[in-house]
Amino acid sequence: MALYLTYVIVGISIAMPIGAISVEMIKQGLKNGFLHGWAVGLGGMTIDVTLIAAFYFGLASILKQPFIQIPMWIIGAVFLLLIGFDSIKNADHDITLPDEKPTKSWFSSYRNGFLVAISPGNIVFWLSVFGSVLT
Score class of each variant (00 low, 15 high):
57 F>R: 09
58 G>E: 07
58 G>L: 06
58 G>R: 15
59 L>K: 06
59 L>R: 04
60 A>Y: 10
61 S>E: 06
62 I>E: 08
63 L>N: 13
63 L>A: 12
63 L>V: 12
64 K>H: 09
65 Q>C: 07
66 P>W: 10
66 P>T: 11
67 F>Y: 15
67 F>C: 14
67 F>H: 15
67 F>V: 12
70 I>S: 13
70 I>P: 02
70 I>A: 15
71 P>G: 04
71 P>Y: 07
72 M>A: 09
74 I>T: 08
75 I>M: 10
75 I>F: 04
76 G>E: 00
77 A>S: 14
77 A>K: 01
77 A>T: 02
78 V>C: 15
78 V>A: 14
79 F>Q: 00
81 L>Q: 01
81 L>F: 09
81 L>V: 01
82 L>M: 01
82 L>S: 00
82 L>Q: 01
83 I>L: 10
83 I>Y: 00
84 G>A: 09
85 F>P: 00
86 D>Q: 15
86 D>F: 15
86 D>Y: 11
87 S>D: 05
87 S>C: 03
88 I>A: 14
88 I>T: 09
89 K>V: 10
90 N>E: 07
91 A>Q: 09
91 A>D: 12
91 A>P: 08
93 H>D: 08
93 H>P: 06
93 H>Y: 08
93 H>R: 13
94 D>I: 11
95 I>C: 04
96 T>W: 04
96 T>S: 15
98 P>K: 12
99 D>G: 03
99 D>H: 06
99 D>M: 08
99 D>F: 13
99 D>R: 13
100 E>S: 14
101 K>D: 05
101 K>V: 10
101 K>I: 12
102 P>D: 10
102 P>K: 14
102 P>Y: 04
103 T>W: 03
104 K>S: 08
105 S>F: 10
105 S>H: 14
106 W>M: 07
106 W>Q: 06
107 F>H: 08
108 S>C: 05
108 S>Y: 05
108 S>N: 03
108 S>R: 14
108 S>E: 08
110 Y>K: 07
112 N>M: 09
113 G>I: 03
113 G>V: 05
114 F>A: 03
114 F>P: 03
114 F>W: 12
115 L>C: 07
115 L>S: 03
115 L>G: 02
116 V>Y: 04
116 V>C: 06
116 V>P: 01
117 A>N: 12
118 I>R: 01
118 I>M: 15
118 I>P: 01
118 I>F: 15
118 I>G: 02
120 P>E: 04
